[in-house]
Design a protein around this nucleic acid. Structure first.
Lengths: 155, 155
DNA sequence: TAAAAACTTGACAAAGAAGTCAGGTTATGT
DNA sequence: ACATAACCTGACTTCTTTGTCAAGTTTTTA
């Protein structure tokens, strides 16, 4: 269970865009400078994010990248998925090398609860907007708990 | 954010041990057969788990591995950490290649909230005992939510 | 006490992820 | 219109993680 390098760096780029005043694009060169990453790598990350519809590029001499939506409407879960994120249920089954009787889709697979845990975590990340990451960090954990509770009350 | 292969397979081994009646060890050969993994790989995984104090080996001709504690007292978080799990705060800083001003330990690092999210997830996993994974899977998600709420009420 | 079954552990090879390169295409400003 | 700055994207190299190998050591049973 790890946050991959690609997710970390990709999120750094997204957060730089979130700090930018709306409507003024930030160039790849500038993002790369601020995060001490190579220009080529930042290009690749933003390509992945744009492909997922999270960022938007402005071409031309004063171009760059913007968020496709305001930071309040972009959720951590989306960013994580765009950057390679969680494996889907189907992918898990395809890559499974073990005996068929233990497949995730079988009733008797001991790991199914683990995947439920993973999906639960994913659903929490889908409730954290970027704007929250920019606020006072002490709030994040508390906010997550509140969201957990809200989810519980629906059950 | 991914569950690594090592975590998945290691947890499979642990769950096999948890299904075993207490006091009767399960051989590496048998675990490997049930999970369709190589004997060598299962040896390595159990070595990691024993090193972390989660399993206990019984040598000799009818030996094998047991859980070091009953399934109710072994938590998912421990298993994940034993298998390579989450990076610590210090490791994150050591491997950080970017500019020093953005280090996790600096006040102005935009990623600190992300690490708080990671730690929060970890604390949830530390509240899920193996015994719960063996029960009806529908319960797991609901139980996680209850635990989130309990944690919230402490704040 | 000897053989067999089992665990122990470091070193290594194969597979996969991370990051780079190179050669595009598109838009802007003069 | 042309030069420039910027984005676009597949192919490639490098590095890390996975999983295997091999050569032990320990314990039990006959």
């Amino acid at each position: 269970m790890r946050i991959t390098a690609q997710e970390e760096y990709g999120l750094r780029c997204v957060l730089q865009l979130a700090l930018q005043p709306e409507g003024s694009p930030l160039s790849v060169r500038e993002i790369a400078r601020r995060e001490a990453l190579s220009v080529a790598y930042v290009e690749k990350l933003l390509y992945l994010l744009s492909r997922a519809g999270l960022t938007r590029s402005v071409r031309g001499i004063n171009g760059g990248y913007c968020l496709a939506r305001p930071p309040e409407e972009i959720y951590l879960g989306e960013v994580v998925r765009a950057l390679g994120g969680f494996a889907s249920d189907a992918e898990i089954c395809n890559q499974f090398t073990g005996n068929v009787e233990s497949c995730v889709h079988m009733q008797n697979c001991g790991l199914r609860p683990l995947w439920r845990v993973a999906f639960y975590i994913q659903s929490l990340l889908d409730q954290v907007p970027l704007s929250e990451l920019l606020e006072d960090e002490e709030d994040v954990e508390h906010s997550l708990m509140k969201k957990s509770r809200a989810q519980l009350e629906l059950v």
